[in-house]
Design a protein around this nucleic acid. Sequence first.
DNA 1: GCCGTTTTCGGCCCGACTGTTTTCAGTCG
Length: 575
Amino acid sequence: MDNLAIARILRETADLLEIKGDNPFKIRAYRNGADITANHPHEFALIDETGLREIPGIGKDLAARIREIATTGDTAFHRDLLAEFPATILDILRLQGIGPKTVATLYKELDIRTLEDLEKACRDGRIRGLKGMGIKKEALIVKALDERKRFAGRHLLSKAHDASAALQTYLRQHAPDAVIEAVGSLRRGCDTCGDLDLLATGAPPSLMDAFVEYDLVERVLGHGDTKSSILIQGGFQADLRLVAPESRGAAMQYFTGSKAHNIALRDRAIGLGLKLNEYGLFRTADDSRMASEREEDIYAALGLDFVPPELREMRGEIDAAHTHAIPRLIELADLRGDLHMHTTETDGKDEIRTMAEAARDAGLQYIAITDHSQSLAMANGLDERRAMAHAARIRAVDAEGIGIRLLAGIECDIRLDGAMDLSDDCLAALDIVIASVHSGFTQEREEMTARVLRAIDNPHVDILGHPTGRMLLKRQAYPIDIEAIIDAAVRTGVAVEINSQPHRLDLIDVHAKLAHERGARIVISSDSHSRHALAYLRWGVTVARRAWLQAGDVLNTQSFNDFRASLRRHRRPHS
DNA sequence: GCCGTTTTCGGCCCGACTGTTTTCAGTCG
């Protein structure tokens, strides 16, 4: 059982307790426990009860339940709840506008157990007969059922960014003097976003009307003076909040989240005799305002340094802000090199020189060209002979002195048994070697771990590429003991990659943070398959920021000579 | 269910919008 699987059962337990109408704080505890589990870098299945209890938010009961899930795959508690309510009832709970109370009513009054039951009840007009419900509510459910089919799921960070940017541009045309900014998970840089949160200050009330009249609107979910929600094409929900300029900082803080971070801040405020909401920080005694205009002022008034949005996930940032230990996070401009990209020689869209010039124009000082190896036949992967010929061409461009240095490398497949896809002689003759898994994702955890460990032990490997192989919204990470991989990387001097492809972002933030804490060397690479994709580096930097990394923690912030000297192949002690 | 430099009991974040209510419950973020 991996953490996500454990978290799923805890979250389902919370949902079922909520439908049952149980103690709301107990429900919160389960939900909180699920979040902690899903975002924890260590595998809970391998931690004993004492260890689990040391994690804040995990108490006696949750620790026992987690152990039970880890050993038996489920909990008796969860099974008992499922005996009370059919599992399919949870699908209904996830519909827009339907909460636990409604689900419970539908089940008790109309015996509605599935989405199909619900759809039929709507068609028959049975919903409107229920207490507290009417024709509008029934129509709302019909729409929610329809939208579920079309807009399921979340969106890649990069897509959310683009959709948000377009919407902001439109809104600014209607309110040129207003400050309009993205908040929520997009501002925190989460790898996927559920919806687009926007905050406007200093805008006329008419901005709300413009918002709900946006060209791409599919449906208006809510339309008020200070808060409106729309569904736009592409499946995004967008929320716009309007606040007065003097409350801008408080609102930025409030709507950026995360929820857990905000709860901790408000809790801290209460302890100081203060109250925090989206309008400001107030003294409880007389409601007088302490801070509200700037986010920094809110944190300062709470005795905290400013916390960058990417760190607001309740992973120690409050303590760090209190002890002046918030790191100065890496920025895109700190990167001097990009170490993973493809060309037309395999599955890239652009030539060596085109990629190099585009990288140079983007401000980089060096790149590594790392096309695929022979196993990846679909991508026209290189055998030894082609790899060396390709390297010669890369070095020829480097020798021309076009204002950027080039390293001749390879993204070499790790075969099923952990052997490298090209001979040691070939790998040794190149400037840099990335080792990556591109096949056999169904291997068992032990087999996959051993496979990658063997690759790391190959002395010619410099970097481990996209270490978990996940594809956001498509494919889970392959099962692997990431801690063992990180420890091996530390031992051997192999760098682990933060892959910047928006659908990869692999390592994920918590693993990158763990890798850094263990002393691993880390690189951020674009894995570009065209010159345009070089811009994806910004998303890798976002992951690094969420992993608390500073510029000095990332190898490719170094100068070309320092970086090259630091590669494993040049650091290896001669024996 | 979790938590504790007053606390092992008694707290636990807070407000906007909608639909159905004629004063508020449910949902959402």
